[in-house]
């Protein structure tokens, strides 16, 4: 590893300012909060026990639930979109993808804020629903799980389209034609050929949204209305308001563990598919 001098500066930087800090919070997670904030260096597992108490475990579950829904909805919207793009004129495919990705590059806070404007009680969507007569008075859209999920889907959808498109477009067109030639109708072909073969892209997109959602802070904070809706808010609070760094550290580690196990499962599925 250290014979390769070119990678040394980059790896050193990442190790020094990411891996070592992670080791520090790993250590912190086994200590306890001092009376005035700070750290008491008493080794114990109290923080982890506390994380699984219902008050906090509920938040973990909600985070998982919101992330799962956001990821599933993203895939459900993105798959047909990616499929439509692969069927479009090849000249325009890159252009369509480009405009699909474009919003992704603008500021995350601003993209999230735009949904605060739209979902507000006096916002565009409530007004529209009243105007077409579906509802009589504004319904609460903002500061709900729904608004958080919308925000997450909105922010990460472009990437999911891209990742599914990537695996759909590398698929040999003749395979689909072969399935049709052998008597498979559109749905047979879709379910038995296209979806299984584009699984790596679907999986990558799903995991991407899940991982970024489960540990998200901004979206639940802005669209969830400042409640401790998700684990990200809880960690934020432990470090800035409650000043319980050891507990915040243990929550972070639980989050990282969830994330890494998901990536591990993904790599296992992909490895099995190759065999």
């Amino acid at each position: 590893m250290f014979k390769n001098k070119l990678v040394l500066p980059g790896l050193t930087w990442i190790s020094l300012f990411l891996l070592i800090p992670c080791i520090i919070i790993f250590t912190y997670s086994f200590f306890e909060r001092g009376v005035y904030g700070g750290i008491e260096y008493n080794f114990n597992l109290e923080n982890y026990v506390r994380s699984f108490k219902w008050t906090y475990f509920k938040i973990l579950l909600t985070s998982g639930q919101i992330a799962f829904l956001a990821a599933s909805i993203s895939v459900l919207i993105a798959f047909p979109a990616a499929y439509c793009i692969t069927k479009a004129n090849p000249k325009y495919q890159i252009l369509l993808l480009f405009f699909m990705m474009l919003p992704f590059w603008s500021n995350y806070l601003i993209r999230t804020y735009s949904w605060m404007v739209l979902l507000n009680n006096q916002g565009l969507i409530n007004n529209l629903l009243i105007y077409i007569g579906l509802i009589d008075e504004p319904i609460r859209l903002l500061y709900t799980k729904f608004s958080v999920i919308v925000g997450l889907v909105y922010n990460y959808l472009p990437f999911v389209v891209l990742s599914i498109y990537a695996s759909l477009s590398t698929m040999n067109k003749e395979i689909i034609e072969a399935s049709e030639d052998l008597g498979g109708n559109f749905f047979d072909t879709l379910i038995r050929v296209i979806i299984p073969l584009s699984l790596p892209g679907i999986l990558a997109g799903f995991i991407f949204v899940f991982v970024l959602s489960v540990g998200n802070f901004i979206t639940p904070d802005l669209l969830g209305g400042g409640k401790f809706l998700m684990i990200g808010n809880l960690i934020y609070d432990q470090f800035l308001s409650a000043r319980d760094w050891p507990f915040g550290s243990s929550l972070s580690l639980i989050l990282v563990t969830i994330m890494l196990s998901l990536l591990f499962i993904q790599s296992l599925i992909l490895a099995r598919k190759k065999l």
Binding site: L18, P21, L212, V214
Partner: peptide, 16 residues
């Protein structure tokens, strides 16, 4: 660094 949640990276750097 590309996949670690921002919040985790933020608090570990703060601790560091």
């Amino acid at each position: 660094p590309m996949i670690i949640p921002d919040i985790v990276m933020a608090i570990s750097l703060l601790s560091f």
